Amino acid sequence: MRKVLPSIMKHVNQTEFGGPNVLKLGESLIPKQNQHQSLIEIQSTSINRADILQRQGKYPPPKGVTNILGLEFAGYELDTEGNRLRRVMGILSGGGYAQYVAVNKDHLIDVPSNIPLDAAGGISEIYLTAYLQYKLSELKKGNSCLVYAAASGVGQATLQLCNHFGVIGIASCSQAKVQKIQQYTNYIVHRDQSIKDQISQIRQYQPQGVAAVFDCVGQQNYQMTLESLGIDGKWILYGLLTGGSIEKFNLAPLLAKRIHLINSTLRSRSDQFKAELAKDFTKTILPVIENGQIAVPIQSVTKVEWNEEGINQIIRLHTEMEQNRNVGKLIVSFQND
């Protein structure tokens, strides 16, 4: 389909930090791509926890990256005249809440023909994040792991990868979200219980401790992490939802158990790293998504027009995630045509 490429695009604008209402409708020049980039017409993206933190002023984008929110996309790669070439998806360091974005060509992932672009807008961030952490954990078939925020998009993706690779996944989530998680695992720890009771339950599941903990929580769960890990266990830290400052933190348990503390981020990684991860993901995980063995955990798909009502819809979705009411991905489907 031939399209006339305009010079101006619409995007979600933010000129100050604060609550969801700081998000406004804005316009800017369409990004100019360099020789290593392609211009993408964005059809869908999703609301991610990092978007909430950035909006609040707690998670600034890497140096040189646009202030426009949005860490993933699905849409069309365009030629120099604006003609659609192919359906693609991928992760971004920023810029997903917009009509167009320039993306490194090596980061583009072809969207399988049987996956709608709406759904594809919720694949890249959670599955590339979960797959990277799984690789860092070096888990093997028969091992066990503990997954915090298991009802989140990344949490559900991680549990599904565990099942695919034959790993026992123990899920930590609130009582209200247990029903959603039961499709992935029978080993569930209720976050509403005391830390002591949660640790006791984990030890009932795995008396020798788990081989890895996937931690996006930080301070609140650090004691549970230390006591749940077994000898030579890996603590994969990829978020600090409850903060990173721990008073009188004792390093002795790490030494006694030979615990590996591995800090993992994806947004600020090099272009080469992201390209290699995308290539590995395309070969190893995407076929499993394509054939339906593992799914995109979608809470909702919201169709958004590029007008004030559309911005209000995005504000509503930010509010829903900020209040921790979602279980899975909140996808935004832009109505560009």
Score class of each variant (00 low, 15 high):
Lys3Ser: 05
Leu5Gln: 02
Phe17Gly: 06
Leu25Arg: 07
Pro31Val: 08
Lys32Arg: 15
Asn34Tyr: 11
Asn34Trp: 03
Asn34Arg: 06
Leu39Gln: 00
Leu39Ile: 01
Thr45Cys: 08
Ser46Lys: 15
Asn48Thr: 13
Gln54Ser: 14
Gln56Val: 09
Gln56His: 11
Gly57Ser: 09
Lys58Val: 15
Tyr59Phe: 01
Tyr59Val: 06
Pro60Gly: 09
Pro60Arg: 04
Pro61Val: 01
Lys63Arg: 13
Lys63Gly: 14
Gly70His: 08
Leu71Gly: 13
Leu71Val: 12
Ala74Ser: 05
Asp79Gln: 01
Thr80His: 10
Gly82Met: 00
Arg84Glu: 09
Arg86His: 02
Leu92Cys: 05
Ser93Ala: 01
Gly94Gln: 00
Gln99Asn: 13
Ala102Asp: 06
Val103Met: 03
Val103Gln: 14
Asp106Pro: 00
His107Asn: 12
His107Asp: 00
Ile109Arg: 00
Asp110Glu: 15
Asn114His: 08
Pro116Asn: 04
Pro116Met: 04
Asp118Phe: 03
Asp118Ala: 08
Ser124Cys: 01
Ser124His: 07
Ile126Thr: 03
Thr129Ser: 07
Leu132Val: 02
Ser137Asp: 05
Lys140Asn: 05
Gly142Asp: 05
Asn143Thr: 07
Ser144His: 09
Ala150Ile: 00
Ala151Ile: 02
Gln156Tyr: 03
Ala157His: 06
Leu159Gly: 05
Cys162Met: 14
Asn163Gln: 15
Gly169Ser: 03
Ala171Met: 12
Cys173Asp: 08
Gln175Asn: 06
Gln179Cys: 10
Lys180Ile: 15
Tyr184Asp: 13
Lys196Ile: 04
Gln198Met: 07
Ile199Ala: 07
Ile202Trp: 07
Ile202Gln: 08
Gln204Arg: 10
Pro207Leu: 06
Gln208Tyr: 11
Ala212Ser: 07
Asp215Ile: 05
Asp215Arg: 15
Tyr222Arg: 08
Leu226Trp: 12
Leu229Ile: 00
Ile231His: 11
Ile236Gln: 04
Leu237Met: 05
Tyr238Arg: 00
Leu240Tyr: 08
Gly244Glu: 15
Ile246Phe: 07
Glu247Asn: 01
Leu255Lys: 15
Leu255Ala: 11
Ala256Met: 14
Ala256Trp: 09
Lys257Met: 11
Lys257Leu: 13
Ile262Phe: 13
Arg269Phe: 11
Lys274Phe: 08
Ala275Val: 08
Glu276Ile: 02
Glu276Met: 09
Thr284Ile: 13
Ile289Cys: 10
Asn291Glu: 09
Gly292Gln: 01
Ile294Met: 07
Ala295Phe: 13
Ala295Gln: 10
Pro297Trp: 06
Ile298Pro: 05
Ser300Asp: 14
Val301Trp: 06
Val301His: 13
Thr302Glu: 02
Val304Glu: 06
Val304Leu: 13
Trp306Thr: 10
Glu308Asp: 12
Gln313His: 09
Arg316Asn: 09
His318Asn: 04
Glu320Asn: 12
Glu320Trp: 03
Arg325Glu: 12
Ser333Arg: 08
Asn336Ser: 10
Asp337Cys: 15
